[in-house]
Design a binder for these strands. Structure first.
Lengths: 231, 231
DNA sequence: TAAAAATCAAATATCATATATTCGATAATT
DNA sequence: AATTATCGAATATATGATATTTGATTTTTA
């Protein structure tokens, strides 16, 4: 009997380590593995059809990324991220995304506008279809299409892990209608700033995006967390 | 015969993974392992008196931190960091260190001034003794004593890995007299800004520190790299 | 010079050990 | 007498060592 989740069948080349990392990270990001959930190495290994060794390595890497916490002799667990942590992560993202856009704006030729337009359209389609997971995925790709024009390896790596860490938070707000319409407006403004090759406008839009998060979303999240604790 | 480098003897509890990570990271940071050098898992394992498993895990974590690169079926190697990478890392550090100081300045009470003074004195002593490794260590501790007042877990973690990545560069300049005197002046200015509980002054000093790096050190490093390639 | 074999090390699996947790039994206290 | 607390054994699972396999590189021979 062959397990459908088995990796060995799907990945014929490359190493198991990276494949396992991607699988587990994916499961955490789309909520299949929830914060606070224990990650039993044996279970994951049999699920993926591999031994425990690549699983352990994968979990260690995810720990380094902040998505997983290790508890000595107890095992690994999906990281619990508090509202305070989200706030911190967002402030870091704000600075680094501004930096990435500054680099990108040094040469707008590197921003693939056609791809950006396509993603923007697909985001709106996903929204009309109420396909939240797909929209989240597309939005991420949209932003990173812009960030990538910075051609800054480390910056992109750090931003990528920060987006991973704030994924839960994004999913949490992905069903609030006012937030969605506001965000869609922001995405369009980003596109226009890039299309106009206007570095200042790009910077302003990014500011607006993050100010909206700071003033509207983070307080809401703090409130929500307080309610959860009281219950 | 007992190997002096053996970890098992020194670390009786906790897991080997963390101990091995610290050891290898330490060896990279103080130059015992040089950029481009292959990290043979067998060798490291026997050197530390452990099996290859914790070594592999440690190398994977260091890969996530950016200190080590993996080459499929070839092994792990100490990361080579180009002048362009240093420049990028420094620009990221600039933004994040300003952010950390902004948080720290929200409540100067959290900055342990006595400790800061002590470190500043020790830095100057280490300098008169020409003890470069110790000075590098102390300077790092000095900055992180300030950053830590931000009480921002993720920010500190990211800054820590960025300092690790720029360690080679710091060592490279640690023997240039003009750089040292300029840096010592910067450290004193940092102390004074904190002592005066002046957030603006702190921000200005940090700006000056990074501007000096950008205008004087990075170009020098680029030049050096070019010469190395020509040779 | 090219091909094949030998060698070497990483990648993965399997096996062993150590530790934390849980459950049950017994004792102690109310 | 009943309930709770504590101690110990059993179980589960992380952690670490050893063994095997796979892939790549180098060397040797035709």
């Amino acid at each position: 009997m062959q397990n459908n989740d088995a990796i060995s069948a799907t990945i014929s080349f490359g190493n198991l380590h990276d494949a396992v990392v991607d699988r587990i990270r994916g499961m955490i990001l789309d909520g299949a593995l929830k914060p606070g959930e224990w990650l039993r190495m044996d279970d994951l290994a049999t699920k993926f059809g591999v031994s425990t060794v690549p699983v352990r390595e994968a979990l260690r890497q995810l720990q380094a990324e902040g998505l997983v916490t290790f508890h000595p002799r107890r095992g690994a667990m999906v990281a619990r991220i508090s509202a305070a942590h989200y706030e911190e992560i967002y402030l870091i993202r704000e600075q680094l995304e501004k930096l990435a856009c500054r680099f990108a704006a040094e040469d707008f030729e590197r921003v693939p506008m056609a791809r950006l337009k396509q993603l923007l359209d697909e985001i709106e389609i996903a929204e009309t279809k109420r396909d939240v997971p797909r929209r989240l995925q597309l939005v991420r790709e949209y932003f990173f299409t812009i960030f990538s024009a910075s051609q800054k390896e480390h910056l992109l790596r750090i931003l990528s892990t920060l987006w991973d860490l704030s994924q839960q938070y994004r999913r949490y707000f992905s069903s609030v209608p006012e937030v969605i319409t506001q965000r869609l407006a922001h995405y369009r403004m980003l596109y226009q700033a890039c299309a106009a090759r206007d570095a200042d406008a790009l910077s302003r839009v990014l500011d607006e995006i993050h100010t909206f998060g700071r003033t509207h979303l983070i307080p809401r999240l703090r409130e929500e967390e307080k309610q959860n604790l009281e219950r």
